[in-house]
Design a protein around this nucleic acid. Structure first.
Length: 302
DNA sequence: CTCGATCCCTGGACGC
DNA sequence: TGCGTCCAGGGATCGA
Protein backbone atom coordinates (compact mmCIF):
# COMPACT_ATOMS: atom_id res chain seq x y z
CA UNK A 1 0.00 0.00 0.00
CA UNK A 2 1.75 3.06 -1.18
CA UNK A 3 2.41 5.57 1.57
CA UNK A 4 4.88 8.43 1.61
CA UNK A 5 8.04 6.32 1.10
CA UNK A 6 6.52 4.27 -1.69
CA UNK A 7 5.14 7.33 -3.46
CA UNK A 8 8.50 9.06 -3.09
CA UNK A 9 10.19 5.99 -4.55
CA UNK A 10 7.92 6.02 -7.57
CA UNK A 11 8.34 9.77 -8.00
CA UNK A 12 12.13 9.45 -7.95
CA UNK A 13 12.00 6.66 -10.47
CA UNK A 14 9.82 8.71 -12.79
CA UNK A 15 12.13 11.70 -12.47
CA UNK A 16 14.92 9.56 -13.87
CA UNK A 17 12.91 8.16 -16.73
CA UNK A 18 10.19 10.44 -18.02
CA UNK A 19 11.27 13.98 -17.21
CA UNK A 20 11.17 16.16 -20.30
CA UNK A 21 9.07 13.75 -22.32
CA UNK A 22 6.16 15.10 -24.27
CA UNK A 23 2.75 13.46 -24.14
CA UNK A 24 1.48 12.72 -27.63
CA UNK A 25 -1.84 11.06 -26.94
CA UNK A 26 -3.94 9.40 -24.28
CA UNK A 27 -5.68 6.04 -24.14
CA UNK A 28 -8.14 5.30 -21.36
CA UNK A 29 -9.64 2.10 -20.00
CA UNK A 30 -11.93 2.15 -17.00
CA UNK A 31 -12.34 5.70 -15.85
CA UNK A 32 -14.51 5.60 -12.73
CA UNK A 33 -11.56 6.71 -10.57
CA UNK A 34 -10.64 9.63 -12.84
CA UNK A 35 -12.13 13.01 -11.97
CA UNK A 36 -12.82 14.11 -15.51
CA UNK A 37 -11.58 11.58 -18.06
CA UNK A 38 -12.39 13.79 -21.04
CA UNK A 39 -10.12 16.48 -19.62
CA UNK A 40 -7.16 14.09 -19.85
CA UNK A 41 -7.83 13.36 -23.50
CA UNK A 42 -8.43 17.00 -24.26
CA UNK A 43 -5.66 18.72 -22.34
CA UNK A 44 -2.72 16.32 -21.96
CA UNK A 45 -1.57 15.90 -25.57
CA UNK A 46 1.18 18.34 -26.49
CA UNK A 47 2.34 18.92 -22.93
CA UNK A 48 5.78 18.14 -21.62
CA UNK A 49 6.39 16.51 -18.20
CA UNK A 50 8.57 19.12 -16.54
CA UNK A 51 8.70 17.85 -12.97
CA UNK A 52 7.48 15.03 -10.79
CA UNK A 53 6.64 16.16 -7.27
CA UNK A 54 5.22 14.37 -4.28
CA UNK A 55 2.67 15.90 -1.96
CA UNK A 56 1.71 13.52 0.84
CA UNK A 57 0.62 10.39 -0.97
CA UNK A 58 -0.04 12.28 -4.18
CA UNK A 59 2.22 12.43 -7.15
CA UNK A 60 2.13 15.57 -9.21
CA UNK A 61 3.24 15.48 -12.81
CA UNK A 62 3.93 19.11 -13.64
CA UNK A 63 3.08 19.82 -17.22
CA UNK A 64 4.18 22.54 -19.58
CA UNK A 65 1.67 24.47 -21.61
CA UNK A 66 0.57 22.51 -24.61
CA UNK A 67 2.58 23.14 -27.71
CA UNK A 68 1.10 21.85 -30.87
CA UNK A 69 2.29 23.83 -33.79
CA UNK A 70 -0.49 23.20 -36.26
CA UNK A 71 -3.36 24.50 -34.21
CA UNK A 72 -3.91 27.27 -31.70
CA UNK A 73 -4.05 26.14 -28.07
CA UNK A 74 -7.51 25.24 -26.82
CA UNK A 75 -8.98 26.87 -23.79
CA UNK A 76 -6.47 26.88 -20.93
CA UNK A 77 -3.88 24.89 -22.81
CA UNK A 78 -1.51 27.85 -22.95
CA UNK A 79 -1.11 27.63 -19.18
CA UNK A 80 0.82 25.08 -17.10
CA UNK A 81 -1.17 22.33 -15.42
CA UNK A 82 -0.67 19.17 -13.43
CA UNK A 83 -1.70 15.57 -13.45
CA UNK A 84 -2.47 14.52 -9.91
CA UNK A 85 -2.07 10.80 -9.22
CA UNK A 86 -2.97 8.91 -6.06
CA UNK A 87 -1.99 5.24 -6.12
CA UNK A 88 -4.68 4.21 -3.66
CA UNK A 89 -4.02 0.64 -2.55
CA UNK A 90 -2.84 -1.04 -5.69
CA UNK A 91 -1.96 1.67 -8.17
CA UNK A 92 1.23 1.49 -10.22
CA UNK A 93 2.62 4.14 -12.51
CA UNK A 94 5.50 3.17 -14.74
CA UNK A 95 6.86 3.77 -18.22
CA UNK A 96 6.86 0.91 -20.63
CA UNK A 97 7.81 0.28 -24.24
CA UNK A 98 4.75 1.05 -26.32
CA UNK A 99 4.90 -2.30 -28.07
CA UNK A 100 4.65 -4.25 -24.83
CA UNK A 101 1.21 -5.70 -24.20
CA UNK A 102 -0.69 -3.89 -21.48
CA UNK A 103 -0.83 -5.55 -18.09
CA UNK A 104 -4.26 -6.44 -16.76
CA UNK A 105 -6.08 -3.50 -15.15
CA UNK A 106 -4.17 -0.90 -17.11
CA UNK A 107 -6.52 2.05 -17.22
CA UNK A 108 -4.43 4.95 -18.48
CA UNK A 109 -1.74 5.00 -21.16
CA UNK A 110 0.06 8.18 -22.05
CA UNK A 111 1.94 7.84 -25.30
CA UNK A 112 5.29 9.64 -25.00
CA UNK A 113 7.48 11.18 -27.66
CA UNK A 114 10.22 8.57 -27.29
CA UNK A 115 8.24 5.49 -28.18
CA UNK A 116 7.27 4.61 -24.64
CA UNK A 117 4.03 4.86 -22.73
CA UNK A 118 3.44 5.94 -19.17
CA UNK A 119 0.92 3.42 -17.88
CA UNK A 120 -1.29 3.46 -14.83
CA UNK A 121 -2.39 0.06 -13.56
CA UNK A 122 -4.72 -0.39 -10.61
CA UNK A 123 -6.76 -3.56 -9.99
CA UNK A 124 -8.88 -2.12 -7.19
CA UNK A 125 -9.16 1.37 -8.56
CA UNK A 126 -8.91 2.97 -5.14
CA UNK A 127 -6.53 5.44 -6.70
CA UNK A 128 -7.37 8.76 -8.21
CA UNK A 129 -6.25 10.68 -11.25
CA UNK A 130 -7.16 14.25 -12.01
CA UNK A 131 -6.08 16.80 -14.56
CA UNK A 132 -5.90 20.14 -12.77
CA UNK A 133 -5.00 23.65 -13.81
CA UNK A 134 -3.04 25.73 -11.31
CA UNK A 135 -5.90 27.20 -9.32
CA UNK A 136 -7.94 24.01 -8.90
CA UNK A 137 -4.76 22.19 -7.91
CA UNK A 138 -3.96 24.73 -5.23
CA UNK A 139 -7.52 24.40 -4.00
CA UNK A 140 -7.19 20.64 -3.97
CA UNK A 141 -4.11 20.74 -1.75
CA UNK A 142 -5.25 23.28 0.81
CA UNK A 143 -6.69 20.94 3.42
CA UNK A 144 -3.64 18.79 3.91
CA UNK A 145 -1.51 18.73 7.03
CA UNK A 146 2.22 19.00 7.57
CA UNK A 147 4.84 16.99 5.72
CA UNK A 148 6.15 14.55 8.34
CA UNK A 149 9.69 14.89 6.95
CA UNK A 150 9.66 18.66 7.40
CA UNK A 151 7.33 19.34 10.32
CA UNK A 152 8.82 21.23 13.25
CA UNK A 153 8.54 19.88 16.76
CA UNK A 154 6.32 22.77 17.72
CA UNK A 155 3.86 22.15 14.93
CA UNK A 156 3.88 18.39 15.37
CA UNK A 157 3.29 18.56 19.09
CA UNK A 158 0.65 21.20 18.58
CA UNK A 159 -1.23 19.15 16.02
CA UNK A 160 -1.12 16.00 18.18
CA UNK A 161 -1.38 17.11 21.76
CA UNK A 162 -4.34 19.38 21.17
CA UNK A 163 -6.51 16.50 20.00
CA UNK A 164 -8.66 13.99 21.80
CA UNK A 165 -8.66 11.49 18.96
CA UNK A 166 -6.53 8.36 19.13
CA UNK A 167 -2.95 8.86 18.08
CA UNK A 168 -3.35 6.19 15.41
CA UNK A 169 -6.27 8.08 13.89
CA UNK A 170 -4.29 11.32 14.03
CA UNK A 171 -1.28 9.81 12.27
CA UNK A 172 -3.55 8.47 9.53
CA UNK A 173 -5.44 11.75 9.19
CA UNK A 174 -4.08 13.46 6.08
CA UNK A 175 -5.23 16.85 7.36
CA UNK A 176 -2.93 16.42 10.37
CA UNK A 177 0.08 14.94 8.58
CA UNK A 178 0.24 14.19 4.90
CA UNK A 179 1.63 10.90 3.70
CA UNK A 180 1.44 8.56 6.68
CA UNK A 181 -0.55 5.36 6.24
CA UNK A 182 -1.20 2.24 8.24
CA UNK A 183 2.25 0.68 8.01
CA UNK A 184 4.33 3.68 9.00
CA UNK A 185 1.84 4.70 11.67
CA UNK A 186 2.27 1.33 13.38
CA UNK A 187 6.01 1.25 12.82
CA UNK A 188 6.55 4.67 14.33
CA UNK A 189 4.24 4.00 17.28
CA UNK A 190 6.16 0.82 18.05
CA UNK A 191 9.45 2.68 17.90
CA UNK A 192 8.11 5.45 20.10
CA UNK A 193 6.56 2.90 22.50
CA UNK A 194 3.19 4.56 22.24
CA UNK A 195 -0.02 2.54 22.14
CA UNK A 196 -2.18 3.29 19.07
CA UNK A 197 -5.25 3.91 21.24
CA UNK A 198 -3.63 6.59 23.29
CA UNK A 199 -5.26 9.96 22.78
CA UNK A 200 -3.21 12.71 21.21
CA UNK A 201 -3.69 14.84 24.28
CA UNK A 202 -2.39 12.01 26.46
CA UNK A 203 1.05 12.13 24.93
CA UNK A 204 3.69 13.82 27.02
CA UNK A 205 5.85 16.48 25.43
CA UNK A 206 8.68 13.97 25.49
CA UNK A 207 6.58 11.29 23.78
CA UNK A 208 5.52 13.71 21.08
CA UNK A 209 9.14 14.64 20.51
CA UNK A 210 10.13 10.98 20.26
CA UNK A 211 7.25 10.14 17.97
CA UNK A 212 8.12 12.94 15.58
CA UNK A 213 11.73 11.80 15.46
CA UNK A 214 11.06 8.09 14.94
CA UNK A 215 8.37 8.81 12.37
CA UNK A 216 10.78 10.92 10.36
CA UNK A 217 13.60 8.39 10.76
CA UNK A 218 11.34 5.51 9.78
CA UNK A 219 10.09 7.27 6.67
CA UNK A 220 13.59 8.27 5.62
CA UNK A 221 14.96 4.75 6.10
CA UNK A 222 12.02 3.36 4.16
CA UNK A 223 12.72 5.76 1.31
CA UNK A 224 16.35 4.59 1.21
CA UNK A 225 15.08 1.00 1.05
CA UNK A 226 12.70 1.98 -1.74
CA UNK A 227 9.56 1.43 0.29
CA UNK A 228 7.68 -1.56 1.64
CA UNK A 229 6.29 -4.17 -0.73
CA UNK A 230 3.49 -5.78 1.21
CA UNK A 231 0.93 -6.90 -1.30
CA UNK A 232 1.91 -5.67 -4.67
CA UNK A 233 3.79 -2.41 -4.48
CA UNK A 234 6.29 -2.01 -7.29
CA UNK A 235 8.30 1.08 -8.10
CA UNK A 236 8.56 2.85 -11.43
CA UNK A 237 11.01 0.18 -12.60
CA UNK A 238 8.64 -2.58 -11.64
CA UNK A 239 10.80 -3.61 -8.69
CA UNK A 240 9.71 -4.25 -5.11
CA UNK A 241 10.97 -2.31 -2.12
CA UNK A 242 12.93 -3.77 0.77
CA UNK A 243 11.66 -2.02 3.84
CA UNK A 244 9.11 -4.71 4.73
CA UNK A 245 12.07 -6.70 6.04
CA UNK A 246 12.56 -4.05 8.66
CA UNK A 247 9.02 -3.92 9.96
CA UNK A 248 8.88 -4.25 13.72
CA UNK A 249 5.13 -4.24 14.25
CA UNK A 250 3.12 -4.16 11.03
CA UNK A 251 1.96 -7.60 9.96
CA UNK A 252 3.71 -9.34 12.89
CA UNK A 253 0.70 -10.54 14.87
CA UNK A 254 1.66 -13.52 17.04
CA UNK A 255 5.39 -12.97 16.52
CA UNK A 256 7.88 -11.85 19.11
CA UNK A 257 8.55 -8.22 19.82
CA UNK A 258 12.10 -7.45 18.70
CA UNK A 259 12.60 -5.37 21.83
CA UNK A 260 11.07 -7.31 24.69
CA UNK A 261 10.01 -10.68 23.31
CA UNK A 262 6.34 -10.27 24.12
CA UNK A 263 3.81 -11.35 21.50
CA UNK A 264 2.80 -8.68 19.02
CA UNK A 265 -0.93 -8.19 18.96
CA UNK A 266 -3.40 -6.89 16.45
CA UNK A 267 -6.44 -4.81 17.21
CA UNK A 268 -8.72 -2.58 15.18
CA UNK A 269 -7.98 1.02 16.04
CA UNK A 270 -9.38 3.88 14.03
CA UNK A 271 -10.99 1.29 11.79
CA UNK A 272 -7.65 -0.18 10.73
CA UNK A 273 -5.62 -3.21 11.70
CA UNK A 274 -3.11 -2.02 14.23
CA UNK A 275 -0.13 -4.02 15.34
CA UNK A 276 1.61 -3.25 18.59
CA UNK A 277 3.57 -4.75 21.45
CA UNK A 278 1.32 -4.96 24.50
CA UNK A 279 4.32 -4.72 26.81
CA UNK A 280 6.38 -1.97 25.17
CA UNK A 281 3.33 0.05 24.21
CA UNK A 282 1.17 0.05 27.30
CA UNK A 283 -2.53 0.55 26.66
CA UNK A 284 -4.03 3.70 28.04
CA UNK A 285 -5.80 3.18 31.29
CA UNK A 286 -9.32 2.24 30.46
CA UNK A 287 -11.59 5.12 30.87
CA UNK A 288 -12.93 5.17 34.33
CA UNK A 289 -16.52 4.20 33.97
CA UNK A 290 -17.58 4.68 37.51
CA UNK A 291 -21.30 4.92 37.80
CA UNK A 292 -21.19 7.86 40.01
CA UNK A 293 -24.15 9.36 41.60
CA UNK A 294 -25.17 12.54 39.90
CA UNK A 295 -23.76 15.43 41.73
CA UNK A 296 -25.39 18.71 42.09
CA UNK A 297 -24.34 21.09 39.42
CA UNK A 298 -21.32 23.07 40.16
CA UNK A 299 -21.67 26.72 39.38
CA UNK A 300 -19.92 27.65 36.18
CA UNK A 301 -16.99 29.83 36.89
CA UNK A 302 -17.66 33.31 35.80
C1' DC B 1 -15.10 17.01 17.65
C1' DT B 2 -14.80 12.23 17.33
C1' DC B 3 -16.59 7.90 16.42
C1' DG B 4 -18.19 3.81 13.85
C1' DA B 5 -20.47 2.08 9.80
C1' DT B 6 -20.78 1.83 4.87
C1' DC B 7 -19.29 2.01 0.31
C1' DC B 8 -16.00 1.72 -3.46
C1' DC B 9 -13.06 -2.67 -5.78
C1' DT B 10 -10.43 -7.03 -6.72
C1' DG B 11 -7.38 -10.69 -5.50
C1' DG B 12 -5.91 -13.75 -2.19
C1' DA B 13 -6.74 -16.75 1.71
C1' DC B 14 -9.53 -20.03 3.65
C1' DG B 15 -13.26 -23.55 4.46
C1' DC B 16 -15.96 -27.21 2.74
C1' DT C 1 -10.90 -28.69 -8.34
C1' DG C 2 -14.14 -25.33 -7.48
C1' DC C 3 -17.12 -22.47 -5.33
C1' DG C 4 -18.59 -19.28 -1.74
C1' DT C 5 -17.26 -16.18 1.94
C1' DC C 6 -14.45 -13.05 4.22
C1' DC C 7 -10.99 -9.73 4.45
C1' DA C 8 -7.58 -6.07 3.31
C1' DG C 9 -7.41 -1.00 3.04
C1' DG C 10 -7.27 4.93 1.65
C1' DG C 11 -10.61 7.88 1.51
C1' DA C 12 -15.28 9.96 1.20
C1' DT C 13 -19.49 10.39 3.45
C1' DC C 14 -23.10 10.10 6.74
C1' DG C 15 -25.39 9.62 11.07
C1' DA C 16 -24.81 9.16 16.12
Amino acid sequence: MPELPEVETVARGLRLTILGRRILSVTLGKTDFIDDPAALEQHLPGRRIEAVDRYGKFMLLRLSPASISDRPPANGDAAPASLLVHLGMTGQLAPCAADQPCAKHTHVCLQLDDGRELRYTDPRRFGRIAYLAEAPLAQELTDFGADPLEVSLEEFAGRIRSRHARIKALLLDQTVLRGVGNIYADESLWRAKVHPSRLGAQLSAKQAETLRKVLKDTLQKAIVMRGSSISDFLDANGEPGEYQRHHRAYGREGKRCYRCGATIRRAIVAGRSSYFCPRCQPAPRRRVRVARTPRKKRPRNA
